[in-house]
Design a protein around this nucleic acid. Structure first.
Length: 416
RNA sequence: GGGGGAGUUCCCGAGUGGCCAAAGGGGGCAGACUGUAAAUCUGUUAUCAGUGAUUUCGAUGGUUCGAAUCCGUCCUCCCCCA
């Protein structure tokens, strides 16, 4: 037994935190990972210009394994992104241009660095465009396509769903592409393990089987992790307006913090395990909390994950803002603010116009509805008059705090 | 290639000449209740303006006093047969 062996096997760590879903051979994976320096890969398709929470959990896996001494290969799907993975989707992905894909690849690389150390030898970033884009169709079919049974492919869960709504030949090829990726990494990087979300299961085993058929060796393994689901079985990380992005330009730090601060009671513990590095015994303590006290767990979760993604300073600021707003009277210097001149205020500002201008409502109709339903407050006083006009008396302290609903705030700062 | 069917407001899905800005459900938003939770109940859910106007039912032309609804053309998708 070496020193490393005294550390718990990373597979057990992952299992204990609840990451693991399916594996080709869990014991073989454990054995493989018992010695450091194992190269493994996870693929990320550059379908947008930022990673989101769904990717984050995979980044956590990369980080856990890297900390255990292994070497992550983050495969960016510059090539497969040109196809679009039908797994877990009921609709056709939009086909992206080469430029868009490349741009997204570059941004992913940057974002992933927050959790993964990409210094030389520690980890690799590869782009499958490098080998997929120049494949010769006929050669590829003979070389790779011959090893796939369509009958078998069609039984994959990912395709079954699409049998109803339609599946293009383009997307049907995705699995083969991904299998080929694994094969290439196996040959060129000595990569014997592929990880991924559980929706990637059929794609992963396709790769494992391709390697076995091509090389005659049986040492490639696959492992999938649970998707981040809430207690109702829906994917987390979605809001009405779309994904919870890691890019603060697309999703503000405060909103990011608030997203986690507001998770359902039933989901906090799971999120702490999967999305933070908080030790399991501490999480156990949080799990014992009941009722209101559960808020402590949510605060910890929000602070931890926001710190990982945006850094400590910004996370602390978001936390402070939340405390000021929700626990200390409903105002904060860090609130989203719009400046208004004293002159303009003196002349009178239509509340409805301001609501629209500050983005608290998307249209005047919506604003009208909101006001009529009592959902708008000015300095904590509910206003039900659609024609209410703001003037100097509303800004005794040089500012006006507007609130829409319970949680959306906006500050008007009066300037000369 | 032949035959049949479908494209409706954020999503699903009703609607087959005026009573349709369009049923119902989901989702969203707001209110009540709460713990910045969940569940529940209520309201609301195109836009602009004060009760009227404008844009909307795949695209585009047409018929009609009037079209989501009828006709022509085009696009997309699904099913059956080959």
């Amino acid at each position: 037994m070496t020193n490393e062996a005294q550390q718990p096997n990373v597979v057990d760590t992952l299992a204990a935190r609840g990451y693991l879903a399916q594996s080709t051979d869990l014991e073989a994976v454990r054995e493989m990972l018992s010695k450091p320096g194992v190269r493994f890969y996870i693929g990320f398709d550059p379908t947008a210009d930022s990673l989101h929470v769904g990717h984050f959990i995979q980044m956590m896996i990369l980080a856990h394994l890297q900390r255990a001494g292994h070497v992550p290969i983050a495969l960016l799907g510059g090539g497969t992104g040109m196809i679009g993975d039908p797994s877990g989707r009921s609709d056709l992905r939009t086909v992206m241009t080469r430029e868009t894909v490349q741009n997204n690849v570059n941004r992913f690389r940057k974002q992933m660095s927050i959790l993964v150390d990409f210094s030389p030898g520690k980890a690799f970033i590869v782009d499958n465009a490098d080998w997929l884009l120049n494949l010769n169709y006929v050669d590829f079919l003979r070389d790779v396509g011959a090893h796939f049974s369509v009958n078998r492919m069609l039984t994959a869960e990912a395709y079954k769903i699409r049998m109803e709504s339609g599946l293009t030949f383009l997307e049907f090829n995705y699995m083969i592409m991904q299998a080929y990726d694994f094969y290439r990494l196996y040959l060129d990087y000595d990569c014997k393990l592929q990880l991924g979300g559980n929706d990637q299961w059929s794609n992963i085993i396709a790769g494992v089987e391709l390697i076995r058929r091509k090389t005659g060796k049986n040492d490639a393994q696959g492992l999938t992790t649970n998707l981040l689901l809430n207690s109702e079985g829906n994917k987390m990380g979605k809001t009405a307006r779309g994904a919870v992005w890691l890019d603060e330009e697309k999703f503000s730090v405060y909103d990011f913090y608030q997203y986690w601060r507001n998770v359902a009671d039933a989901d906090v513990i799971n999120c702490l395990k999967l999305l933070t590095f908080v030790p399991l015994d501490e999480i156990e303590a949080y799990a014992a909390l009941e009722d209101q006290a559960i808020n402590e767990a949510k605060k910890r979760l929000a602070l931890e994950i926001t710190t990982i993604v945006h850094g400590e300073a910004k996370a602390k600021a978001a936390e402070r803002q939340a405390i000021e707003i929700f626990e200390q009277g409903g105002r904060s210097d860090d609130m989203v603010t719009t400046e208004v001149t004293a002159e303009a205020l003196a002349a009178g500002l239509s509340l409805l116009d301001i609501l629209l201008e500050t983005g608290l409502v998307p249209s005047k109709s919506e604003g009208r509805r909101m006001v009529q339903q009592g959902g708008v407050t000015v300095n904590d006083t509910s206003i039900s008059d659609v024609y209410y006009t703001l003037d100097a008396k509303d800004a005794p302290n040089g500012e006006i705090i507007l609130r829409r609903g319970k949680k959306k705030y906006h500050r008007l700062l009066i300037v000369e």
